[in-house]
Design a protein around this nucleic acid. Structure first.
Lengths: 205, 205
DNA sequence: TATCCATTGTTAAGCGATTAACAATGTTAA
DNA sequence: TTAACATTGTTAATCGCTTAACAATGGATA
């Protein structure tokens, strides 16, 4: 299937979580305007997104929640799952591991890396922490395709280069430096300080 | 001044950080294409953003770094500064406090809140942690205008309501639930799971 | 002095995403 | 049986942001 718009992909992820929640509470069908309410968006947008992934509802009952969850899974997930590594086991790295621990999804965090000897060879929430020197070895061995980068900013480019040479396919960069990656590596950047400064700007009346 | 586009505000925050870094290393002037390189964007976009804030460079020397930093400060900051609270002193809350500790900016994190008795009345990186029961009291007393919300998802709406009733002006929401806020409260949402799922989607070739 | 040229500032075009509009559909109610 | 209606799926319009295009500028160079 042709690549979907980034914004649609983000919403599909949110639809799925909201739908799982509704399904667990016993609901079987849902209308576009109900999904829209859950996410605080419009029903048109929901229908447009579902049109893009080719899922069709029924006229008076809306969408079959179970079917739609499965359909979104076909779009977002890979059959065999994808392995994720957290680079930098600081607060942010641990936050990620916490969010994912226990959730059995097609994304699994299988390794963390740090330079701190006190963290190396420990296990956090079931995820082993290795010496950062071993990134390349383990990424290749474990076929890890996604990295969450939460290292100090002056290490970010060097670390990204190692990941790229080890065949990583996507990087989620939380360091405040724009990374250089080749075209075939997907890069998503998020800057906590910028987010807070943005809120501060719009919060002053 | 008229409100700037959100994307421009985000970039201004990044320009400032990059410019501060350049200034510290002794540089005094900079061209639009040099700023663009630092952020991996185009020089046109830089010039357009600077046009929007009304800053004018010189033709052959480019922009005066010191002046531009000050100009961005006038746009983004308030004269007296803004106070920030972290609600939920988990990994993510601590990550935020860490990022900001030591940096003397117009944004200062002055309080954290948690329900865990072991955290209440401790101090993390200079930031005192209070009982979540006291959010309203302290937000009002300290004139805190911005909240970073990192509580468990089932507490998010209740907590947001307390913040709103206490006169908060902006909320940065890291819980995975869309919040209901009145028009005069600025809301920025970020979902770590969605970000990772987006990377995963675009990383599968 | 006159010409060249890199750079800025700004207008216009293009693009991607959201929103509006509406035909199609089939269930419900008269 | 027919009319009313809520809802879906899709096309068209709109909006906001990015990118392209280019005139204006004034220092450097011949």
């Amino acid at each position: 299937m042709k690549k979907l718009p980034g914004k649609t992909v983000e919403r599909l992820s949110k639809y799925r979580r909201a739908l799982l929640y509704s399904f667990k509470s016993g609901k079987e069908h849902i209308f576009s305007h109900e999904i829209a309410e859950l996410l605080h968006i419009t029903s048109v947008q929901v229908r447009r997104d579902l049109m893009l992934i080719g899922y069709t509802g029924t006229l008076r009952k809306g969408y079959d929640i179970k079917e739609l969850i499965d359909k979104i899974g076909i779009i977002l997930d890979t059959q065999s799952g994808q392995k994720v590594a957290v680079i930098g086991l600081g607060n942010l790295g641990r936050a990620f591991i916490r969010y994912f621990s226990g959730k059995r999804t097609k994304l699994s965090i299988v390794a963390a890396f740090d330079v701190n000897p006190e963290k190396i060879n420990t296990v956090y929430e079931g995820v082993p922490c290795y010496d950062s020197e071993r990134i390349s070895e383990i990424v290749i061995r474990e076929k890890i395709s996604i990295a969450i980068l939460t290292v100090p900013v002056d290490e970010s480019n060097r670390t990204a280069d190692i990941l790229i040479r080890s065949g990583i396919k996507g990087i989620l960069n939380y360091t405040s430096k724009a990374l250089n990656v080749p075209q075939d590596v997907y890069l998503e950047e998020y800057d906590m300080v910028t987010s807070l400064e943005k809120v501060a700007y719009f919060a002053k009346q």
